[in-house]
Design a protein around this nucleic acid. Structure first.
Lengths: 340, 340
DNA sequence: ATGAAAGCGCTAACAG
DNA sequence: CTGTTAGCGCTTTCAT
C-alpha cells in the first residue's frame, strides 16, 4: 500500500508538504504543489481516512440510522439526503437498527458514533430516559415521533395534524365509520401510531362524529400483509365500515389489497387514505390518496442542522415539525358539492 | 473522552491488559479481568474503532454499495444481508453510488474501501475495463449483470432465463404481441435490460413466435412514472399489444397504472409480468405476477463468499447465477387447458 | 515555504 | 499472567 511518506520521498519533500498540498492548506509553492500532485497520481496514492480520522477527528461521513433497510419511506429519505450532504462534502451511509431499543442504543454507542461526523437517527425503540442518558459530542439529529430530551435537535412530522386532515376529508365526503388501520391507543407513549390515532380522533370530535374505539385496528408489524389480513377481520366484524385511514402507505396498500380480496371496490364501497406519500403511492390502486409528510422539508432541515452542528455552531436545540399536506388521488371520492 | 489508558490506570493495570480483557485474548486472571470490566463499566469506556482499525486493520464492518437508496429491490436485499452479517459479528452499512461510473469508482477507491473489511458492490456504471483496473486487497463481491473480470467473485441473476420464463408463459397463455417495457437492444454491453430482452427474444424463438423489435420499449430511467407514460405511447402506436413483460416490478407497477389510465383491464385486456418479486408485488394490482430472482439465495451466497474472503480463505473466484422462478398472480391469466 | 517532532488510541510482538 | 516497546498513517505544532 502506498502511503503519504511514499509520495513524499518520491517527490523529494516531507510528508507535511504532501499533507499540506492535499488539504490545500496554502503555504506551498506552486512548483512543489505540482510535483507532489504528479507523484500522487503516479503512485495512485489515496489518503487513509482512518488515519486522518484518528488524528484530525474528522471522517466527512454522516450516518442515517433507520429502523429497517426495507422501509420505503426511509429509502426515499436517504435518497433525498445523500445529494444534499454530498453537496457539502459529506458522505452519507445508512445503517439499520432493527427498530429495537438495543439496536438503537448500539447505533448510538460512542464507539459507533465516533466513526461519523454526525448522525441522523430515526428512533423508535428508545425511551425518553434512554435518550437522556446519551452523552456524546458527535452531533445527533433525532427523527421521529417520540418525546426527546430538550437538548437534542429533533425533527418530527405533524402526525396528528396529517391524520386529522385525512380523517376530516373522509368524514366530509360522507364516510361515517372510518377504521384506522395501524392505530393505537392514544394514551400510550407518543409513537407514530398513537399520534396518528389522536388526529383521527380529533377530526371526529371537531366534526361532531363519533370516534368508535372499536374501529382502531392495531397492527404488528405495520406492514402490508398484516394490514391485508387485519382489514378483512375488521370487516367481518363490522361491515358498516365505509372508509379506512391507514397509518402508512404500506398499510394502505395492504388495506386496498384486502378490500379487493373481498370483492369490495375502492373508493365506491370504501375510501382509503394512507400516510407518507411514497413515490409508489401515485401508481398503485388507481392512485393511493395520502398525507404528504413533507419529506423534502425534513431532509433539507436535517442537513442544515447537522451541517451547522458539525461546523461547531452553537444554537438552541431545534425542535421542528414538518408541514403536512393532503394529496387526494383515486382511493377517495370527489368532494361533495356541499363541502365549502 | 475516556480512553483505554484511563481504564488501565483506574484498574491499576497496563493498557495491554485492558486490551486483552476486551478482546478476550485469554492470558488474564479472572480477578484482573473482573476488575478491568468493572472499571470499564464505571468509566463508560467504549473502544475507539478508528484506532483499532488503524492498528489492527479491521473494522468488523462491511458495506453494500447500491445504485440508489430508494430502489426497493436493494432495500430488501440489504434487509436480508444485515442479520446474516450480524450473526457473524459484522456490521452492515449501505452506501449509494448514484448508479454512475464516477460514483462506483469513488466507492471502490482505496480510501473508501479501507474503511470496510469487505464490500458488496452492485455495479451498473462500471465497464469491464474499469473493474479490471481495480486492485485492492479489500475483499469485494460484485453483484449485477455486467461482465466482470474473472478474478472477482460475482453473483448475478439468471436474467435471460427469468425473462424467458415470463415471456414463454405469456405466449403459452395466448398472448401474441408482448411488449417488453424497459428493454434494450441485446447487442449492447450486457446489462439488466439487455439480458432480459434476450430472454424475451429467446422465448419467442423457442415457441416459434415473432419477436418484433418494435415491441421493445426503452426506458430511462427505469421507474414507474416513466413506464406509465411509455406504455401509453406504445399502445397509441400499436393497439394490438396483448401482454407486457416489465423488466422490473417497479416498471410493472407503472405499466399497470398506465393501462388502468387508459381504461384497460389487467389481465383481461393485457397481461403483465414483472421481475424482482418485491414484497409489495403481491399486494398491488391484484397481485403482480413476477419473476423471483432468488434474492434469499443471493444474500446467503454473498455473505458466505465475503465471510470466507475476509477470513483470508483462498479459493478460485466464484461466479454464481441465482436460480429464478416464475410467480404467477393476478396480472396473468390462468393457463389454458391445452397447456400440457 | 518547508520540515522535524510528537502523538491521536489502539494492538502485535515480544519480554519478563 | 502481565507489561514494555514500537508503530499503524496521518495532522498539529512549532521551528527553521
Amino acid at each position: 500500500m502506498v502511503t503519504m511518506s511514499d509520495v513524499a520521498s518520491a517527490a523529494g519533500v516531507s510528508v507535511m508538504t504532501v499533507s499540506n498540498v492535499l488539504n490545500e492548506r496554502g503555504r506551498v509553492s506552486a512548483q512543489t504543489r505540482l510535483r507532489v500532485l504528479e507523484k500522487v497520481k503516479e503512485t495512485g496514492y489515496e489518503i487513509d481516512l482512518t488515519a486522518r480520522r484518528l488524528r484530525a477527528g474528522r471522517t466527512d461521513t454522516v450516518a442515517l440510522v433507520v429502523p429497517h433497510f426495507d422501509h420505503a419511506y426511509f429509502g426515499e429519505l436517504a435518497a433525498r439526503l445523500a445529494p444534499a450532504f454530498g453537496a457539502k462534502g459529506k458522505h452519507l451511509v445508512v445503517e439499520q437498527s432493527g427498530a429495537s431499543r438495543e439496536g438503537e442504543l448500539a447505533a448510538l454507542s460512542a464507539a459507533r458514533l465516533r466513526m461519523y461526523d454526525g448522525v441522523l437517527l430515526s428512533a423508535v425503540g428508545l425511551s425518553f430516559e434512554d435518550l437522556d442518558r446519551i452523552s456524546v459530542r458527535t452531533p445527533i439529529v433525532l427523527l421521529g415521533e417520540q418525546r426527546v430530551p430538550e437538548r437534542f435537535d429533533h425533527i418530527t412530522m405533524a402526525n396528528a395534524e396529517g391524520a386529522r386532515l385525512a380523517t376530516a376529508r373522509l368524514l366530509e365526503s360522507g364516510a361515517r365509520r372510518i377504521a384506522i388501520v395501524g392505530g393505537e391507543e392514544p394514551s400510550r407513549a407518543p409513537s407514530m401510531a398513537s399520534q396518528r390515532t389522536r388526529g383521527w380522533e380529533r377530526a371526529h370530535v371537531e366534526l361532531g362524529a363519533d370516534a368508535d374505539r372499536g374501529l382502531v385496528v392495531q397492527l404488528r408489524p405495520h406492514d402490508a400483509p398484516t394490514a391485508r389480513d387485519a382489514i378483512r377481520k375488521m370487516l367481518e366484524r363490522d361491515e358498516r365500515v365505509d372508509a379506512v385511514f391507514a397509518v402508512t402507505d404500506q398499510v394502505g396498500i395492504g388495506v386496498v389489497a384486502g378490500l379487493t380480496d373481498m370483492g369490495l371496490r375502492v373508493p365506491d364501497d370504501l375510501q382509503v387514505i394512507g400516510f407518507d406519500d411514497l413515490a409508489l403511492a401515485r401508481h398503485v390502486a388507481g392512485g393511493l390518496s395520502s398525507v404528504d409528510p413533507g419529506s423534502d422539508w425534513i431532509a433539507a432541515q436535517a442537513v442544515d442542522i447537522l451541517e451547522a452542528r458539525m461546523a461547531g455552531a452553537a444554537f438552541a436545540p431545534r425542535h421542528l415539525v414538518s408541514p403536512v399536506r393532503l394529496v387526494l388521488r383515486g382511493t377517495t371520492k370527489a368532494a361533495p358539492a356541499a363541502r365549502r
